[in-house]
Design a protein around this nucleic acid. Structure first.
Length: 524
RNA sequence: GGCCCCAUCGUCUAGUCGGCCUAGGACAUCGGAUUUUCAGUCCGAGAACAGGGGUUCGAAUCCCCUUGGGGUCACCA
């Protein structure tokens, strides 16, 4: 019987969840679930302590939103805690002592300035930099003296420069490094705090992590970690370096730092556009603090977790040559590391939108209403405790919208159904083209149909359509001669749900009021 | 620059260890049909094995080189 699979995701508390990080987390989660194993969430906060809760909460929130539950970690605890590196100082200390005792780590008294000078000198001579182990030549007495004088030092892991180190990566295969080229890594800062390369290894050993699945950008420092794993536990976990997520249309790593650039990225444009229209209405700010690199961006715009998950899972992984739409359960069942692709994968907003449309199809009207209501409330278009009428109307609107509603915040594109009749704004271009240009013929037609509407007892889409057809025929006109103006008069926009659905939705009174207003506006 | 990784349509990918590939699918794009508009739906089209050497009866698939792209070189994670 093989050991149970234990994977982990160890984010540093940055205050937001990166979409690429979420993909890495997802792969770890999937592998654990696929094997009936355990998924651990650990917070790598060796470097920052301030506002920890504030920085961790959004990350936990993203996991919860997507339904990726962690078996051990913050809030849920577990047998291998604590799950914050900042609380695991004693473990690092113990590991450190073990290494020191074995002669595999040493105190380095060289100041940062000296080290920097060494590095620059090597660079100048175009020589590969290797740290100079001056402190290794110190006698016990000299060391004692330095410590007596409170000389600060860091602790470095002693790399055996005579050997090579290799790993068998689940996605990369065999990767080998020559230790003669590896500097002794600092594992403990002069202030006593451990560094990532060290803390992470100690934790992975303590927490009995069996598979370290992480982004390719970590491959380079895996040599050092493998060495430390060996020194501390005699073995290494199974590594799997998955390709990083690249920015749309590029081969470069998707980074929060470049959001400014992404605005001009043609593939990213649709995503930004979504936020640009919705957030101002909601009173949110579109900025550095909320952008498409972050998971919360999608949540706030009303994407479906299923769509995000499906999209992320297909970035660097595929099941076969035809299966695209997959539920989380389905992916769990079929996810394997050997089907992870090696090349970096560009994040594709169009693809995400396509998945979103697919998964939206399976959301029924009642559920859509529940998800749309908060947007309408926040926009101030309906009351904060929606009345039955408001709910019913929203339901009818959503039904009429059909597949036009792609993300829930799309409901905010339909202010015309919530605005007062005399506040309706006409789309300028459409108005010029459909009304202004043909006032003499259009307005009389509109006037006539207005009276037809007024007399209509059965104010339903089908009846209204029949009535309009009959009307235009009687006037010797075509449908196209009036329908655009009619749409503009009643909704202010050139496009939307079916014309007669719109009329039925608004009801007789509002239709008449709006048509009258248009006639007055056009003939004044 | 050193080390390491990668390389199939615009994008995500299939290609499982050489032949079923005149390279499949999806997204995107462009046509056509349907529709009162938009969206949608249906049908269709264009679109790729980076280059060069090998190995082999036969290579997108194996080997080498070149080129290109990327990652990483911290008292960050």
């Amino acid at each position: 019987m093989s050991t149970p699979v234990r994977t982990r995701f160890a984010p540093s508390p940055t205050g937001y969840m990166h979409i690429g990080g979420m993909r890495t987390a997802l792969f770890n989660w999937l592998w654990a679930r696929h094997n009936g194993g355990t998924f651990v969430l650990r917070i790598d906060d060796t470097d920052q302590q301030r506002n920890l809760d504030e920085a961790v909460a959004p990350i936990l929130h993203a996991f919860r939103w997507l339904g990726l539950h962690w078996d051990e970690g913050p809030d849920v605890g577990g047998d291998y805690g604590p799950y914050f590196q900042s609380q695991r100082g004693d473990r690092y200390q113990a590991a450190l002592e073990k290494l020191m005792a074995a002669g595999k780590a040493y105190k380095d008294f060289d100041s940062p300035e000296v080290v920097k000078a060494d590095r620059e000198a090597a660079e100048k001579e175009k020589r590969n930099y290797l740290n100079i182990r001056r402190s290794l030549d110190l006698s016990p007495q000299e060391i004692a003296d330095l410590e007596e004088a409170n000389t600060s030092y860091v602790i470095r892991f002693l790399v055996d420069r005579t050997r090579k180190v290799a790993i068998q990566d689940s996605v990369r295969g065999d990767v080998e490094w020559d230790c003669a080229l590896i500097s002794d890594p600092v594992i403990m800062r002069s202030n006593g705090s451990p560094l990532y390369n060290f803390a992470s290894v100690v934790d992975d050993i303590d927490m009995q992590i069996t598979h370290v699945i992480r982004a390719e950008e970590h491959l380079a420092n895996t040599s050092v970690q493998a060495l430390i794993f060996e020194a501390l536990s005699g073995s290494t976990p199974q590594f799997a370096h998955i390709p990083f997520v690249a920015a749309p249309g590029t081969t470069k790593k998707l980074s929060k730092r470049d959001v400014g650039k992404y605005r001009n990225n043609p593939q990213f444009r649709k995503l930004f556009a979504l936020g640009d229209t919705a957030f101002p209405i909601l009173g949110n700010e579109v900025s550095e603090s909320l952008n498409p690199v972050m998971v919360s961006y999608y949540e706030q715009l009303g994407f479906l977790p299923e769509a995000i998950l499906n999209s992320l899972a297909r970035l660097g992984w595929s099941l076969d040559d035809v299966t695209e739409n997959m539920s989380l359960d389905f992916i769990v069942e079929h996810f394997t590391l050997d089907r992870v692709v090696k090349a970096s994968a560009g994040f594709d907003p169009d693809r995400l939108l396509a998945f979103q449309e697919h998964w939206m199809e399976s959301v029924d009207t009642a559920a859509r209403v529940e998800q749309c209501l908060p947007y309408l409330i926040k926009a101030g278009w309906i009351s904060s405790s929606p009345t039955d009428d408001e709910r019913a109307f929203t339901g009818r609107l959503i039904t009429a919208l059909g597949e036009r509603l792609k993300v829930f915040s799309d409901i905010l594109n339909y202010d015309e159904y919530f605005v007062a009749d005399d506040q309706l704004v006409y789309d300028e271009k459409a108005y010029a083209k459909r009304v202004e240009k043909s006032v003499e013929t259009t307005i009389p037609l509109l006037q006539g149909y207005r009276d037809v509407l007024a007399a209509e007892e059965d104010f339903t889409a089908s009846a209204l359509e029949a009535a309009l057809n009959q009307y235009v025929e009687s006037r010797g006109a075509g449908l196209g001669d009036i329908i655009h103006a009619l749409r503009l008069a009643t909704t202010g926009k050139p496009a939307g749900p079916g014309m007669f659905d719109c009329l039925e939705l608004l009801g007789k009174e509002r239709c008449l009021a709006r048509i009258d207003r248009m006639i007055a506006h056009a003939t004044s």
